[in-house]
Every structure is written in structure tokens, then in C-alpha cells.
Write a protein that binds this DNA or RNA. Structure first.
Lengths: 222, 222
DNA sequence: AAATATAATTGAGCGGTATTCAAAAATGGC
DNA sequence: GCCATTTTTGAATACCGCTCAATTATATTT
């Protein structure tokens, strides 16, 4: 009897240990991640102001106080939500660009990639464009730092295009980059707000048409 | 004595009447306008969330409750602030376009006009871009309705340019409009947030360069 | 296995803010 | 000058972000 009890306890301890290890490796993060996942969903659905901490806590299955163990405050939690996305962003883009030759082909791909990312990560995009990118705090955030890599990637492509003689030399690369990003963002807002579908391929063509060839008739530019 | 008293009352009544008329014509609006002016200043300075109703009430010289006589709630007040601006927007733009011939010249002027309006109406622009354009409510607001006139004006110019053969016929006018508006908005955000100066003339040239001629070398587009 | 120490979690309570509403003040008509 | 109506007020209410003392779970020691 004593023996079997001891064995039981050994087993229990073993399980506890394993559970603990699991918790340390994944679950500890998992609780944080559960909170972030809940926050992403509710923030995107209701907006920052209409979202209550208690709603996030309930969705994540924790007490309100627990949220403040992982995040400084409500805004800090908001900013934490898209961090993972902004990290993979430049990386994904680089992956997609592999094997593509020429600046214009790369720019076309970048535009496609971003629209497609927006389409497949709507909560992230909603938060990023509608809630985060507009506060003064954004420019001090990790998310901004991460996205700057992506932004710089676009800049590099444009500059290489100019260097290689594929892009006219008298354009301002910063403006070109801002045009690409600004156009995509501006077009996306109604979709994000109303949840419409995005006709990506047509859009990419329409945008590239203007960016590559411009509005003026060719015979008038000579 | 009685006479003089009566006279005094007559004078007082006269003054009261005049004051009342003034109030009905201007001051009644004036109290509302005082609240709006206070709100514009504090909202633009502190942002929507950091702004308290009591701060606006104090700045406007009214009690908190009075604000709720004129506006449904805090958000309603925020949306009321830029309404006057959005009304004059299309009107001003039309004025500036008078006497300008050709779609490209008009587009150049539109871009200049908007950047200049942003520069000279920073509080309005900050509220519009950073606070208002985010929410789903914006698309149901009077401000959106008013700005649609401006947006349609741009669309018309582009279509006329296509019809008159000044602009290539295979561009999507909606995309061109969104590129113009999106680019300006995207470029403006850091200025608005950090309060930097806007180098308008250089910007207009850089933007027009790309929109009119595109990135591709001319000899590669043939 | 028990005792102890440490860490994690909880949720009631605090302070502050948007909003309401009954009372007070101002206004308008007679 | 008196009553009816409108406007204004600010104390009271409800709700929310956030804190912290108490509780529970986990880890360590013996």
C-alpha cells in the first residue's frame, strides 16, 4: 500500500514536472499569447476605445489583474498585438522576392505581397492601420522599428532600379516608396472597415500601370 | 422718478432685445462655436482619448452639462469639429482651379492645394487624419459626405483628362484618385505627428513627376 | 512528505471620466 | 412684473482602467 502510494506520487511528480516544463517552454508564453490573441480579436472587432480589459480577460480566460502582469497598460497591450506580424513582415517579403529579376518586377511583387498579406491578416491590418499607425507613440514603438526594415527594403529596390537604369533617375525614391505604401493603405481602409473582399490581381495591375507608366500620353512626354 | 425708471427699463429691454437678437444670430451659434473651437484646440493637442470633457468645458467657459445640450456625446463633438472645413474644402479647391487649363495642370494644382491646406489648417488635418478617418462611424458622418464632393471633383478632372486625350485611356480613375489622396495622407502623417514644416513645392514636383511620367524609362515602355 | 519560500493569479476596491438629470437660472411673452 | 419655457448647471451615477492585499499554485529544502 505504502509502495503503491509512493509510486503514485512519483508518477504525479513526473507528470507535474513535465507539465511544468511544458508550461515553461510554451504555456508561460501561451498565457501571454492567449491574452494577445484575445486582444487582437476584440480590438479589431470593437476598436481600442470600445474594448474593455474585462472583455479581453474573459475571452482569454484569465483575471483582469493577470493582464497587468504581462502588459504595462491597455495601450501597451494594443501595441504588443501586431509585434509578431511586423517581425515576419520583411522576412516574408524577402522570401517572396527570391528569384525575381528587375526592380519593376520586384515592385509589382511587393505590391501584390502587401495586398495579399492585408487580405490574409485582416485583424492585424485593421489594428495597424486604423488604431496604431496614427498615434504619436507608434513612432517610438517596436512595431515601427520592425516595419522600417520593410520600408527600407522597398527603398533599396527602388534605388537599385535607378542604379541599374531600369527606373528613371530623376525620381525621389522616398516619394515613390510613400506613394506605394500610401496608395495601398488608402485603398485598404474601406475594405477593412466594411469587410469587403479585395480584388488583388486587378488592383496590382491598375496600380502598377500608373506607377510604371504614369498618366501622360507617351507622345506628349517627348 | 417713475418716468425715469420706466425709461431705464425701456433701455434695458432694448439692450436685452439687441443682445437677444445678437445671440440668436450669432451668439447662440457662438456658444456652440466656442465649444467647437475649444474642442478643436484640445483634441488636436492631446488627442481624443487624453482629452476630457471637463477640459473642453473649462476652455469654452461652460459647464460640462452644457456640452451635452449641443452634442450627443464626446465622439459626436469630435466629428462636429471639422465639419465647417469639409464644407469649404471642395469650394476652395474649385476656386483655386479657376482659369487652369488641362487635366495635368489641374491635378498638379489639386496636389498643391491640398498640401497647402494641410499646412495652414494643421489642427483640422491632425483631427481628420489621426482621429476621425479611423472609425467606421466616419463613413456615416457629414464630414465624409462633404469630402466626397472633393473626392468626386478629382475623379471628374481625371475623367475629363482621359476624354480630352490628355491622360492615357487605360488607367483606372479611382486608383489614380486614391494614389493622389493616399500619397498625400501617407506623407503627411509624420509631419502632423512631429509638427515639422512641409516643403510643399518640392513635394508637388516629386509627386507629379511620378504620377505623370511613371518610373519606367521611356525607351523601355515602347 | 512536510515545511517553507517564491511566484503567479485573483478580484474587490480606488480614482477618474463620460454622461445624466433634477434643480436653478435665464429668457420670452403677456 | 409674473408665469411659461428654455437654457444652464454641477452633483450624482455608472463604468472602466488599473492597483494591491490576499489567495493559490509552484519550487525548493529538509
Amino acid at each position: 500500500m505504502t509502495k503503491s502510494v509512493v509510486k503514485m506520487n512519483d508518477v504525479q511528480n513526473e507528470i507535474k514536472k513535465i507539465a511544468t516544463n511544458l508550461k515553461n517552454n510554451k504555456d508561460e508564453g501561451s498565457k501571454k499569447r492567449r491574452i494577445i490573441a484575445a486582444a487582437e480579436q476584440i480590438f479589431a472587432q470593437k476598436g481600442f476605445f470600445e474594448t474593455t480589459i474585462s472583455a479581453i480577460a474573459k475571452e482569454a480566460g484569465v483575471a483582469e489583474g493577470t493582464i497587468y502582469e504581462y502588459f504595462e497598460n491597455k495601450k501597451d497591450l494594443l501595441y504588443a498585438v501586431p509585434e509578431q506580424n511586423t517581425i515576419e513582415y520583411a522576412d516574408f517579403a524577402l522570401n517572396h522576392l527570391q528569384g525575381i529579376k528587375g526592380a519593376t518586377n520586384k515592385i509589382r511583387k511587393i505590391i501584390w505581397f502587401q495586398l495579399d498579406y492585408f487580405r490574409t491578416h485582416r485583424n492585424y491590418t485593421k489594428l495597424m492601420i486604423l488604431e496604431i499607425r496614427r498615434g504619436p507613440d507608434y513612432f517610438k514603438s517596436k512595431a515601427y522599428e520592425n516595419l522600417k526594415l520593410y520600408s527600407d527594403l522597398i527603398l533599396t529596390i527602388i534605388r537599385e532600379g535607378i542604379r541599374d537604369g531600369e527606373i528613371v533617375s530623376d525620381v525621389n525614391p522616398y516619394i515613390v516608396r510613400d506613394m506605394i505604401l500610401g496608395t495601398i493603405e488608402h485603398i485598404s481602409i474601406p475594405w477593412l472597415v466594411f469587410g469587403r473582399e479585395i480584388p488583388i490581381d486587378d488592383l496590382v495591375e491598375d496600380i502598377c500601370k500608373v506607377i510604371f507608366s504614369g498618366l501622360s500620353l507617351k507622345d506628349m512626354t517627348f
